[in-house]
Simulated scan of single mutants.
Amino acid sequence: MMGKAAAALLALLLILAEGTKGEAMPRSAVELRCQCVGTRSRFIHPKFIQNVNLTPSGPHCKNVEVIATLRDGREVCLEPTAPWVKLIIKAILDK
């Protein structure tokens, strides 16, 4: 009986983890660990992007994190090695 409960809990956790791909973690975790659980490299048209936050690697996270805030309020973690994201990073750094 205990094995079925553990299997059900594991299945639930896996389903919840799948739904977080490419999304930023809540702001309460900003200084403690990486904000991005996963990243997305598919192109997002600039007209849908309201703001872009670039967080360099450091003691809190070994990864460079690029988080775009979309016009509808969602936050999306972008893949920093994607060519179109590199252009956005370059534009930010050139300002």
Rank of each mutant, 00 (worst) to 15 (best):
residue 47 K to S: 06
residue 38 G to I: 05
residue 24 A to V: 01
residue 15 I to T: 03
residue 38 G to L: 05
residue 35 Q to W: 06
residue 4 K to A: 14
residue 39 T to N: 07
residue 1 M to G: 07
residue 10 L to S: 13
residue 74 R to G: 05
residue 9 L to P: 06
residue 46 P to L: 06
residue 15 I to M: 01
residue 81 T to E: 15
residue 50 Q to H: 08
residue 45 H to N: 09
residue 59 P to G: 02
residue 41 S to Q: 10
residue 22 G to F: 01
residue 47 K to T: 09
residue 9 L to T: 10
residue 68 A to G: 07
residue 15 I to V: 05
residue 72 D to F: 15
residue 89 I to R: 10
residue 66 V to R: 04
residue 51 N to R: 06
residue 45 H to E: 06
residue 72 D to R: 12
residue 84 W to G: 05
residue 34 C to P: 09
residue 61 C to V: 02
residue 25 M to C: 08
residue 70 L to E: 10
residue 5 A to L: 12
residue 59 P to T: 04
residue 25 M to L: 15
residue 46 P to K: 03
residue 16 L to R: 12
residue 32 L to M: 02
residue 17 A to N: 14
residue 91 A to K: 15
residue 37 V to S: 08
residue 9 L to E: 09
residue 53 N to S: 13
residue 2 M to R: 11
residue 5 A to R: 13
residue 61 C to I: 06
residue 28 S to N: 00
residue 73 G to S: 08
residue 24 A to R: 00
residue 23 E to L: 15
residue 6 A to S: 13
residue 94 D to W: 04
residue 35 Q to D: 04
residue 38 G to V: 08
residue 75 E to D: 12
residue 6 A to E: 08
residue 36 C to V: 00
residue 82 A to W: 13
residue 91 A to R: 15
residue 11 A to D: 03
residue 3 G to W: 10
residue 92 I to N: 14
residue 87 L to A: 15
residue 39 T to E: 02
residue 16 L to S: 11
residue 59 P to V: 02
residue 42 R to P: 07
residue 78 L to F: 07
residue 56 P to R: 12
residue 77 C to R: 01
residue 48 F to D: 12
residue 5 A to C: 12
residue 52 V to G: 03
residue 79 E to L: 05
residue 82 A to M: 09
residue 35 Q to K: 04
residue 5 A to S: 12
residue 29 A to Y: 00
residue 15 I to R: 04
residue 31 E to I: 02
residue 87 L to I: 11
residue 46 P to V: 12
residue 19 G to T: 15
residue 63 N to G: 07
residue 65 E to D: 02
residue 56 P to Q: 15
residue 91 A to Q: 15
residue 35 Q to P: 01
residue 1 M to V: 08
residue 94 D to V: 05
residue 25 M to I: 13
residue 40 R to F: 02
residue 95 K to N: 14
residue 81 T to W: 10
residue 87 L to R: 15
residue 54 L to P: 00
residue 87 L to F: 10
residue 77 C to L: 05
residue 51 N to D: 09
residue 33 R to N: 00
residue 84 W to M: 04
residue 40 R to S: 11
residue 6 A to N: 12
residue 39 T to G: 05
residue 46 P to N: 04
residue 19 G to P: 02
residue 47 K to Q: 09
residue 45 H to F: 08
residue 72 D to V: 09
residue 18 E to S: 13
residue 13 L to S: 10
residue 76 V to L: 15
residue 28 S to M: 01
residue 54 L to S: 05
residue 83 P to N: 08
residue 60 H to N: 07
residue 47 K to N: 06
residue 38 G to K: 10
residue 33 R to K: 04
residue 27 R to M: 08
residue 47 K to V: 11
residue 82 A to E: 09
residue 60 H to I: 00
residue 32 L to R: 01
residue 33 R to A: 00
residue 87 L to Y: 12
residue 79 E to S: 14
residue 76 V to N: 03
residue 39 T to F: 05
residue 79 E to I: 11
residue 83 P to T: 03
residue 7 A to Q: 15
residue 19 G to K: 14
residue 29 A to R: 00
residue 43 F to Y: 14
residue 13 L to N: 14
residue 4 K to C: 03
residue 26 P to W: 07
residue 50 Q to I: 01
residue 20 T to C: 14
residue 52 V to I: 15
residue 62 K to D: 14
residue 79 E to Y: 08
